[in-house]
Design a protein around this nucleic acid. Structure first.
Lengths: 226, 226
DNA sequence: CTATTGACCTGACGCCCATCAGGCCATATA
DNA sequence: TATATGGCCTGATGGGCGTCAGGTCAATAG
């Protein structure tokens, strides 16, 4: 009331700082890869700092409106805003090696690397990347040893290029939904279509949202796949 | 080795059971609304059963391939498959009341109800529903008191109908991205466009993916909005 | 009938986690 | 230069959480 003396020293920053940006990035990465947010301790280990410091940083990020959190709850953490300059930034996506019929597509053991892809490709879904073996999709611009970025989703629309699990094998094909049957069409005249009926066990693993040449780090999203 | 006697009684079910389906549904609902999975205890409270029973059910769901989990970790839970007959099922989405400039759009206090929307509309993103006040979008089929379903996303494409936070107020408008400025266009000849420059504080809250009349429970998704 | 499973319970054990107190150093402002 | 913040630390505390043991009851296949 009476004394309204202004604070003297360094005053609280409104903008996000470097370490905070890094913290937010690691939370995002964890969330995308594991499906749930990290605990304060796990976050601290990832960042290489103490859990008390991680706790501080999370509080800062909450104060600045980037995170929402439910106090005193393990993993009670959710991202509610992205830093403006990172909205169109790159998001790390795990590269999976072998895709087998068992469920653990994104299991730790299968992850053989990481690629950066445009964040807006990933949106809020879980994604993974896959190395192409074979030339059945060359006419769609997908060559042998290319890396495809796949958004994990159990349903897809007719015309989408999808990663499908047919029996024991994973393939990348263009999906066509007919009245009774589903067709998996290669984009290479030297390959045949696969027709799938209700009796076959077909599982859609996800939809291809980007392709990039082997070893490249420059994204090359194809128009209209989104 | 020697005695290979077959099991006699009721044998393990391959398919998902009723209570298990309900458990999975509640996990999904929790995940969509809070941004992270529930703990075993929270899940038990929601289902009205003991935490040991909830633990049992989660184990069953893991065994049957619906959930992935990291043992001994709080909230170490992620959905990896949806029951086939629920793939195109309805997902509950919270209805938020007031949207103010403060961050907590999906805060507990703001949630005034729930609507069921088609699961494929929501995909893997976080969504909310909003009651329309005003007639500025009538030509797009969005009337006063209609309920719009919004997928939360910080970026949108030109032509999308979005919920935008302009200063202190939330509005639903069609978004047009020009070279330098952004335009928020109503769909009603009696209203004017709003032109937004880099100096204005504009935040995209999300994209409208469906509209439904007040009090209705029948989804009426508009073509091409997805 | 009998074995076995699903779905539920109570109770206990032990670890992990969030939080807080208290302190260090560098930095930036009045 | 005084002061307050960001970013970091160690250490202690207490509660929440996952897990397991052991039990009940109903349903079902041999």
């Amino acid at each position: 009331m009476s004394q309204n003396h202004k604070p003297r020293g360094r005053r609280p920053l409104k903008e996000i700082t470097g370490p905070q940006r890094r913290t937010l990035k690691e939370i995002r990465r964890f969330l995308h890869q594991r499906g749930f947010p990290p605990t304060i301790k796990e976050l601290a280990d990832i960042l290489g700092i103490s859990h008390a410091s991680a706790h501080d940083q999370v509080n800062q990020l909450v104060r600045k409106g980037y995170l929402r959190r439910e106090p005193r709850k393990a993993r009670g953490l959710a991202i509610i805003r992205e830093p403006e300059d990172e909205a169109s930034d790159m998001v790390p996506v795990p590269i999976v090696g072998e895709v087998a019929a068992g469920q653990p597509i994104l299991a730790q053991e299968n992850i053989i690397g990481e690629v950066l892809v445009e964040g807006k490709l990933v949106r809020s879904g879980r994604c993974f990347a896959l190395e192409i073996a074979g030339d059945s999709m060359v006419d769609a611009g997908i060559n042998d040893q290319d890396l495809v970025v796949v958004r994990q989703q159990p349903v897809a629309e007719s015309g989408d290029i999808v990663v499908a699990l047919l029996g024991d094998e994973a393939t990348v094909k263009r999906l066509y939904i007919r009245e009774e049957r589903i067709e998996l069409r290669p984009e290479n005249s030297r390959h045949r279509s696969i027709s799938v009926g209700p009796e076959d066990e077909l599982r859609i693993l996800g939809k291809v949202v980007a392709v990039r040449p082997p070893g490249s780090n420059n994204p090359r999203p194809e128009k209209g796949w989104q």
